[in-house]
Design a binder for these strands. Structure first.
Lengths: 344, 344
DNA sequence: ATAATTAACTATAACGTTATAGCTAACAAA
DNA sequence: TTTGTTAGCTATAACGTTATAGTTAATTAT
């Protein structure tokens, strides 16, 4: 085991001061050329690397970004992380991951740990439980400590920080319009409970499209999937409700707020021998792997996770490097796009 | 913006020495009860938190684990990370993520950054390109620096460190046997190129099962999917080859080394109006979301990513905390299990 | 010849901790 | 009275850096 050599050790070996070594390695003209070269050669030969922790302490910068997300095993979030990681690395930042598991308590804990620790800033998407509780003190406190925060996808207006969101409402409206243009008038909406901001916005878009086309919204056609820890229960709830719905009334299209819901819907329809898209047409949010490999493949609204991740990282790094002022905040809106596949 | 208070500031405020403050907060009996309580109260009131970077410098420990994986947007790897994150957090460690993108160069870079930086140990799965190149100097150098490394899933025997793998060969053999027991004798194998250790082992298991049942292996029934950056090309290669194969000979079963391959196979079969599992039965590795939501759903071999992640983190943390000796290495083998669904 | 300048280096403090050793006053033991 | 002990605190070094302010000795200007 070869321990990393330090400036002090180099200084001792070569009988010069630590300052001389430090300056030589920075190629400072304060040090004579000969000494400088000798020290650089020695450092190289011994594979000297500055101790980043010491530098972090000195500079009060860790060059590390913390990311708090509700889930990792999730197509959209993993895309976003991937893209944050990519952009950050390219700009000399490391990425620490923390998972809230949709739990308020864990999110607060994560935030605390990150804020006391080795990070310069935080990118996060808020846990469902936190949205439900409406308690955002942890986020505000972090911001008060001078740690920049960027929120993405699930955001809340009462927090003053940079944000990256998707035009959820508009996208849902457009998708609904596409279904209506295809002469579908009994469109069932599979959405989440109201406190989830994105689900809510998508529901609004759906309703607005109906209104624009003078279609009376029907509450029996809106299924709000109860949020259960342990998604198995959640899914069987969805399947039961959906089955009841299609048996008790006419349904000729389904709009799902994510691909898990749409994928489950596909199963139910298949079980009931309903052909997609002939009898029922489907469009869903989240352009993930289910949409591509299901059969029929699903028409989806892509939220462009790569772009969201990149923009979030960019906004944060701009704050960290002082490129943008620390008390002006931007909200970037990413435009969704509809990817047509077999289900519609 | 409220900057975090330091020991020094507390000391100045209360007219005591830094030592006194430090010891009081550690509840040291060297300090009188009254002073101690006063200091603790003051610290609490000002929300004192020790500066973890200073502690890291002092203790030469960062309480952070680095994870290098080939991909994040990948069901198996995201499960493993999730589980590493969970176990690590529970044991007081943070997790830094680095993605190699299957590239040797990026893996080396990641390793360098992590090794110079804020981590105590590394958990990794080796990039395909690295496996192909057979160049593992970066991993060895990191180990030589005294940074413990744990390899999972894609490992290599020439590196001395802890490892967590799956009984790939045995699992492939058993899955093949299941197909044979179902009277399928023309089993097509969809595998990766030979240098990917796990693909190779799975191929071996397949061949062994054939041999045990006196079935002559047929090289036309083995498709080695060419690895392309940009998985679109990779997939169309697979689809073309598979289509050729099923048209030119009898095939009554398919074994895929991952669910993307199997999912693509499903598409090809559907396109050719071949019914699954009646005409062709399918089993694949990777129990991901495609397997569950495809139709028919895929019978898969689960590699138990949660367990792999947890074991990897446990092995590493045991090394970091000195629970296990730093020069004895373990290889843990996780048993796969076959999950039967509709495709077989 | 004396002062001013410069080249080439060194000492020191600081980032925020903690562990070790040291100091002082009060009290107890001999 | 002198020595020893203890309680309660402080000073210092160290972790590995870098920036600032010295310190020399040699060179140049006047």
């Amino acid at each position: 085991m070869i321990r990393r050599i330090t400036l002090k050790e180099i200084a001792n070996e070569l009988n010069v001061s630590i300052s001389t070594v430090s300056k030589s390695l920075k190629d400072s003209h304060e040090i004579g050329l000969e000494t400088r070269e000798k020290i650089k050669a020695f450092a190289k030969a011994h594979n000297y690397r500055p101790n980043n922790i010491a530098l972090s302490l000195k500079n009060r910068k860790t060059k590390t970004i913390g990311v708090i997300i509700p889930e990792i095993v999730h197509h959209f979030f993993s895309i976003v992380i991937n893209s944050i990681e990519k952009f950050s690395t390219e700009n000399g930042y490391n990425v620490i991951i923390a998972v809230s598991n949709e739990s308020f308590e864990k999110e607060v804990l994560n935030m605390e740990t990150l804020a006391n620790g080795h990070i310069d800033g935080i990118i996060m998407s808020i846990a469902k439980e936190t949205l439900k509780k409406q308690d955002f003190h942890h986020i505000k406190e972090t911001i008060d400590l001078g740690i920049p925060v960027v929120l993405f996808d699930r955001v809340i207006s009462e927090i003053k920080c940079d944000k990256v969101i998707v035009n959820d409402k508009q996208a849902a409206k457009e998708a609904t319009q596409v279904l209506i243009d295809d002469k579908r008038e009994n469109i069932l909406l599979l959405t989440s409970e109201d406190y989830v901001s994105v689900g809510n916005l998508r529901t609004e878009g759906y309703l607005e499209a109906l209104k624009d086309n003078d279609i009376e919204p029907n509450s029996n056609l809106i299924i709000k999937v109860k949020d259960k820890k342990g998604s198995q229960l959640e899914m069987s709830y969805l399947e039961d409700e959906l089955e009841k719905a299609i048996k008790s009334q006419k349904v000729d299209a389904i709009l799902g707020v994510n691909e898990i819901y749409a994928g489950s819907a596909l199963k139910v329809l298949k079980k009931n021998n309903i052909s997609v898209p002939k009898e029922i047409s489907i469009i869903s949010f989240t352009d993930g792997v289910i949409s591509r490999y299901s059969s029929p493949s699903l028409s989806t609204i892509s939220q462009h996770g790569e772009i969201m991740g990149e923009r979030s990282a960019e906004l944060l790094i701009n704050k960290l490097t002082g490129k943008t002022s620390s008390n002006e905040f931007k909200t970037e809106i990413i435009n969704c796009s509809l990817i047509k596949r077999e289900s519609s």
